[in-house]
Each structure stands twice: as C-alpha cells, then as structure tokens.
Computed example of a mutant assay.
Amino acid sequence: MTAAETTQLQQAAEDAAHHSYAPYSHFHVGAAILLETGETVTGCNVENASYRLTTCAEQTAIARAVAQYGPKIRLRAVAVANLAKVACQPCGACRQTILEFAAPDATIFFPAENGQTASCTLTELLPAAFVLKDR
C-alpha cells in the first residue's frame, strides 16, 4: 500500500468512529477495510445494553462489505481508529472474522501505545488461527 492509501484508510476509520453508538463504554471505534478490488468500506461499533450483543467496528465493516459486494470479498487492509486516541488492536473475535475474508498478505493498521500507528500482518496478529478448510 502507498502512504497515501494508508492515510486515506486511517482517516476513513476515524471518520467512521464518529458514527459509533457507544452510550455505555463511551469508547467510539471505527474501522475501514480496503478490498482487493479497491473499494473501501467502513463500520463502527454498535453497543447494546446486553454487552454480549455489541458489534465491533471491524465486524460491522466486514458485514457491510459482504452485504454490498458478496461473500467472495477479500480484504487487502484493515484500519482501526478510536476517538480516545489510545492503543487499540482488533479483539480476538474480530481477528478471526478478518481471517475469514483476508487476502493472504492483508495488513492491519491500529493505534499503538506511543500515539503512532502500528501495522502488522494478520498472521502476526493471529498466529494460531482457527481454520476449518482452505478458502
């Protein structure tokens, strides 16, 4: 990815965070996914009084992409942002959901502890992935 593409993806994730519904935790998260076809799709966290029913930003973006483009989408990159500007990697459930649709060389961008943006591959983020079959 170019630096400009990375910046655009990160900005899209931050913009999506402004739309989140987080009345309980007040932790507003946005995600932007770049598909292999070049489209960018965003999502935000949507909380529920029953926390188990909360939807993460990454899962919202992926569900939206599947609804819009179909189940054969492949993620080239994922960016995560939060309005608190604190370190925030995708949770375990999101890592597994990303894996389901990720291209082999997908890159994940997320806020690091030092206020900068960190990046890694999905394999680095989820080294012991659960896989039922080859995709």
Rank of each mutant, 00 (worst) to 15 (best):
T7S: 13
T7N: 13
T7V: 12
T7C: 07
T7A: 15
Q8G: 11
Q11S: 14
Q11P: 08
A12L: 12
A12K: 12
A13T: 10
A13P: 15
E14K: 01
E14N: 02
D15W: 00
D15R: 10
A16K: 11
S20H: 01
Y21K: 01
A22G: 09
A22W: 07
A22C: 10
Y24G: 07
S25K: 08
S25A: 09
S25E: 14
F27K: 11
H28I: 00
V29I: 13
V29H: 02
G30A: 05
A31F: 03
A31Y: 07
I33R: 01
I33Y: 02
L34M: 13
L35C: 00
E36V: 15
E36R: 10
T37N: 13
G38W: 00
E39M: 08
T40A: 00
T40D: 03
V41M: 04
V41W: 04
G43P: 02
N45A: 02
V46I: 15
N48H: 14
N48E: 09
A49R: 14
A49T: 11
S50F: 13
R52E: 12
R52F: 11
T54C: 12
T54S: 15
T55A: 09
A57H: 01
A57C: 03
E58Y: 07
E58M: 05
Q59V: 06
T60K: 07
T60L: 05
A61P: 06
I62Q: 09
I62L: 08
A63L: 12
A63H: 14
Y69D: 07
Y69R: 12
G70W: 03
G70F: 01
P71Q: 13
K72G: 10
I73P: 05
R74C: 13
L75A: 08
A77K: 04
A79L: 11
V80S: 03
V80I: 15
A81V: 08
N82A: 06
L83G: 12
L83I: 14
A84W: 09
A84T: 11
A84H: 10
K85W: 04
V86M: 02
A87K: 15
C88E: 07
Q89M: 14
P90K: 10
G92R: 04
G92W: 02
G92L: 02
G92K: 04
C94F: 02
R95V: 01
R95K: 08
Q96L: 06
T97I: 09
I98N: 03
I98H: 00
I98Q: 01
L99W: 08
E100Q: 15
E100R: 15
A102I: 08
A102D: 07
A103Y: 00
A103L: 01
P104N: 07
P104L: 04
D105H: 06
D105I: 03
A106Q: 06
A106Y: 04
I108H: 09
I108F: 11
I108W: 09
F109S: 01
F109R: 01
F109L: 11
F110A: 15
F110D: 13
